[in-house]
């Protein structure tokens, strides 16, 4: 569905492009309700809080099971913040927006200005 960027690893190769750029990777396993909810939630708040400075890579482990070990994926769905470092893992369907924002350090940034 929204796997548009999954086969395009280019964005993460130039982290210096923008220090505030978010490179996010969402691991799902098939089109389950939780996966779909997570994708929808992710899209929504990225647009709200990170408009223009994010890219999302969705990885379906049903199709690419070999990718699970690399990012230490256990729970599904898991959102991994690759950039900015440090690496963060957020599990669950992302329904708790507050926690997602804290987990991604977005709220803090939003409050700064």
């Amino acid at each position: 569905m929204s796997e548009a960027t999954s086969e395009d690893p280019a964005p993460e190769t130039d982290p210096d492009r923008d220090p505030g750029h978010y490179h996010l990777r969402l691991y799902v396993a098939g089109q389950t309700a939780k996966s779909l909810a997570a994708m929808a939630n992710l899209k929504r708040f990225c647009e709200e809080h990170l408009a223009g400075r994010y890219d999302i890579e969705v990885i379906d482990l049903m199709k690419n099971p070999q990718l699970a070990a690399g990012d230490q994926i256990l729970a599904i769905p898991t959102l991994v913040r690759r950039l900015p470092s440090p690496l963060k893992r957020i599990i669950g369907d992302l329904s708790n927006t507050e926690k997602v924002l804290v987990g991604l350090d977005i709220r803090q940034r939003a409050d700064e200005p």
Binding site: K34, N41, P77, I91, D93, K99, V100
Partner: peptide
Amino acid sequence: EETGEYDLEG
């Protein structure tokens, strides 16, 4: 960080 429902399918 846990943000809702998940399972250990991974």
